[in-house]
Write a protein that binds this DNA or RNA. Structure first.
Lengths: 343, 343
DNA sequence: TTGTAAGCGTTATCAC
DNA sequence: GTGATAACGCTTACAA
């Protein structure tokens, strides 16, 4: 008996109800519904029919109690707000969805206390595994080695090499960007990027410079322009750059935000993009990249894919053995109109 | 016994282990740990000590089996990608976190089939309640009246008035924006907004016009400029507007995206913001609003608050009775530098 | 104050 | 093929 506005008043329907209605024992009912072979077709039909009639849905908690597997995993994020966590979450949720696994979402908000608290709760709920999604691509403290379930770290690698971590390949991403610019015939390529305290900034710059070196080129402006992850920095750096190096013909920005600032100033300075200066961003943050003038070529980190892989690794580890070390997920180039072959 | 990389090999520690170590029965151990009165202080201490030594954490699944309450809720979103869902999610997760309730995250990706599938799974896991988070502020189909648990609809209201829905107050939001502009001394106020097929666009426009009427004013340009939710539309509409109505002194944009386009064209046209034209956006999408030139005054929908309220309503409904109808959450004005008193 | 026993809803192991 | 019966880990009368 249930009230109309969804507040349950009576017992939920159980396997016993189904068995009774079908005129069999609970044991038989269970076998019938679980597709075991040891049950007559006609009996099975009767049970299935009864189950449907009562719209029976098995109590997963009870099942988990027996199988010692809850069919759930915990997604422990340190910063839901951060735009990087979301696609990873989506990828993981998606991958698990097709595996009958449900996902607990926990946001620690960057607070270690809260993280420990959520961890306790998740273990108490007997999750079969954990994915720890970081907010920054830098190393984070491990949850520890003595957890009863496998853990995969995504985006922020664990500081314990015995853990399994999945990260984006920023070195290759930087290389990808510069490679594209070189193929477009650009020779005077500058790199404006964010906070040098981020490994992402360092790695992308490293990849970029490696590719330049292969082509026998030097950075336009002589050095990497480190600063902040903001449009304002993109604008400021570009002004300085145009001043010091007026013949620059391509700019690799360390993020789409920075790239927006770069475009803005180039526009003001009357430099046409891409015919005079090509611009490439990083992140493929659609709202910024696709709406830019002109739409921005950029590097996509494949975060959703990263989340999906994290889920797969975890799934494989449940009951099996987990790998260790840092696994790297390559990004991909998204070409739009802010880059083009030189004239 | 557990391996070093987190793959559980042995049984998890159970209350029996604790009881044995403490030299009492499971019943006593249970009472001791749950703070029941009927246990000697010294015994309790022994049990607690044993539990800690084994780092025992009670199996929530087993507890749920008895109490008929899983301590979990389902968060059913139709579009995780959408930026509106995220803050709602965060608010809800936060509110539940302090209530010992864990949250299942399910993304239906706008697919009804997938939604039914997730719904089944969640009910099977005996969630105590559901929050359905929509991607658009328009009405969505109800999950139905005969669910065994209470449901709260957030952002997208249910089409069944017997359900409880929480939505943002777009009419009031539009009023808020125009009120601010009027207080800044503006008289020739235009409204450029998005797709007229969105109730959000209609409602905001309605609120804006109501406030204008109270002040005895008409819309600059004579009508609402409906179009698309994009920067490009913001740019295009502003060009037309400047053409038709060159003396406009304020523009209310239906979204921050549109506002960015508006600012861009005003800048090109040499109109100073805010001294000549004030601009106000909607959504408080920080990446766009805070980085604009100048930083954008905008209306924040208080989505996180909406999520928090949804959680509270659901929590109150679990075991109790759920309200019905549509409850409205007011937004708030965020003032930055794109608006200022005239002269 | 403590322990025994029943039971939550399911599955697995046996007899029948 | 089918049905008792015993788990799974925990709580809670009720008995000691």
């Amino acid at each position: 008996m249930e009230s109309t506005n969804g507040t349950a008043t009576g017992r939920a329907v159980t396997l016993r109800d189904v068995a009774r209605l079908a005129g069999v024992s609970v044991a038989t009912a269970s076998k019938a519904l679980n597709g075991k072979q040891q049950v007559r077709a006609e009996t099975r039909a009767r049970v299935v029919q009864a189950a449907e009639q009562l719209s029976f849905s098995p109590n997963t908690l009870a099942q988990g109690l027996i199988t010692q597997r809850s069919g759930t995993v915990g997604l422990l994020t340190s910063d839901l707000e951060g735009r990087f966590s979301i696609p990873i979450l989506m990828g993981a949720e998606d991958a698990f969805g097709s595996d009958q696994t449900s996902v607990f979402l926990c946001d620690a908000r960057g607070d270690t206390i809260r993280e420990r608290h959520h961890l306790r709760a998740l273990l108490s709920r007997r999750v079969d595994g954990l994915i720890v999604v970081g907010a920054r691509p830098d190393t984070r403290p491990s949850l520890g080695r003595d957890l009863p379930v496998p853990v995969v770290y995504a985006y922020s690698p664990s500081d314990d090499p015995a853990d399994l971590s999945l990260v984006t390949d920023n070195v290759d991403g930087g290389r990808l960007a510069v490679d594209h610019l070189i193929r477009c015939g650009r020779r005077r390529i500058a790199h404006i990027t964010g906070d040098p305290g981020y490994s992402a900034a360092q790695d992308r710059a490293r990849g970029a410079q490696a590719r330049l070196a292969e082509a026998g080129l030097e950075l336009a402006g002589g050095e990497v322009w480190f600063g902040m992850w903001s449009e304002a920095w993109g604008r400021g750096a570009t002004r300085l750059l145009l001043d010091r190096c007026p013949d620059v013909d391509a700019i690799f920005a360390g993020s789409d935000e920075i790239a927006r600032g770069v475009l803005d100033v180039l526009h003001e300075a009357g430099r046409d993009v891409p015919s005079q200066v090509a611009v490439i961003g990083y992140d493929n943050w659609t709202i910024l990249a696709a709406n830019a003038r002109p739409p921005l070529t950029t590097v996509d980190m494949n975060l959703e894919e990263l989340g999906r892989i994290a889920a797969q690794r975890l799934f494989a580890a449940i009951g099996g053995t987990l790998g260790t070390g840092v696994e790297t997920v390559p990004g991909r180039l998204i070409t739009r109109e802010s880059t083009a072959p030189l004239g």
